[in-house]
Design a protein around this nucleic acid. Sequence first.
DNA 1: TGCAAAATAGTTGTATTATAAGTGTGTTAT
DNA 2: ATAACACACTTATAATACAACTATTTTGCA
Lengths: 241, 241
Amino acid sequence: MRKKSKSQKVYDYIEELVISGEIKPGERLPSEAKLGEILEVSRVSVRAGIEKLSAIGLVSKKKGGGTYVNKPKNDNYLSVFTPTLLHNTDYLEMMEIRRALDSLSVQLCAKNITESGIRKLGEIVDSMENIENEYDFFELDKKFHLLISKYSKNRFLHNIHLIIWDVLQKTLRTKYNTVTRQDHSTDRVEEHQDIYQAIVHKDEDLARIYTVRHLERIIDTFNCEYNEAYYEAKKEEKKKH
Amino acid sequence: MRKKSKSQKVYDYIEELVISGEIKPGERLPSEAKLGEILEVSRVSVRAGIEKLSAIGLVSKKKGGGTYVNKPKNDNYLSVFTPTLLHNTDYLEMMEIRRALDSLSVQLCAKNITESGIRKLGEIVDSMENIENEYDFFELDKKFHLLISKYSKNRFLHNIHLIIWDVLQKTLRTKYNTVTRQDHSTDRVEEHQDIYQAIVHKDEDLARIYTVRHLERIIDTFNCEYNEAYYEAKKEEKKKH
DNA sequence: TGCAAAATAGTTGTATTATAAGTGTGTTAT
DNA sequence: ATAACACACTTATAATACAACTATTTTGCA
């Protein structure tokens, strides 16, 4: 593996601070000089790293004031793709978008997929059957849906999906309990098999229907857990009185 | 208006070079030193500007080799949103995504829009009736659809739409003839009125249907012109023999 | 002449130092 | 009490130097 550049070191360090929640949206970063001390790099490299983070909208700089972690509502619209946003309601909004985009990509995929693509997809579905840990399943799930979007032959669509899954993955690390528990359903393997079969038979409509059903089931499950958690929290509060 | 920063000056300058096609994907940018001379800024500022462009994936830097404009296929997926990509097929792919996302946002909008939102939307539709020049209509069109996505109350969705329209607008400047001529249809005002009315009556399904119809009409018109242009080109070629 | 090795020029990466310019806070003078 | 000011802190820009890497040109040998 190639050596990381100094500016990348800065970038990763700050991104980690934000993802882990050590610095929350609206809060200020250490000054450039301080970051330079901490990471043992020059201010030039610190600035280069921060410049990138600013370009993708994770932070905003204020001359003389400091550098701040952006709040989700920030106008810089590339901030859609920063990994800090996925709280509970954000997750639902994201899944709403997936419902729209996945149903498009699976439809196009069923039309455009090649024989070798079908083979690859089949392998993924097969390996889903004997999976025990959640992390591995997530990987397969990601591969499955990204492969579908790839064979949609719509480059934009695929790229948006890449971003969405990147955000999902990064968010997962910090919200593992909340977001992943929802998918313990025993149906989940079967759902993927259904989608796969529809693609094999080039049945665009059926593939779309199965995909929508799949995603809506995930959303429903999440909603239930979310409400449960909500009531739990309320119960805790009552105890205090 | 606030003064532009030096690094932003660099950013805009290079972006313009790429959009206008002066520097094509794969080609090399002037060196940092040269850019500094041209724009009369220090190398620090040049680097800051390029750093941003690199962060959003428009260019890639090679230590010792120079800075290159990325080809669309570049892996850095943020490059979806660089304005260089929209050739004819790209435009269609983009509209395919709009069909999926606009139908979602209009549906949510019909559910969530406020009274004041309806008023604003109405004003836009009204001003569409007496528009002569294409550029103004584009502006209204953009406002209309962005307002809808805003009242979808899904922040991700709205942000993606902001990006899409930003790309459309930037691309338009260079492909004015190809992309905009398609929308000279007399139906276009009426289509927006239909969508508006459906939203007013909070009829989610109807709003979605009108929106899909609207977008599919645009796609069809574009396809016709695209094919016409294609045949024209072929005819020209035949003449040469 | 052909070609490989080596020198060279050009380019980005990082460091250092200095200054300008904006922000925020605390202090002072009224 | 409040407005004006001073001061510390922070980011923005600049100039210079050198390191590290690349691409090209030149050199030297067969």
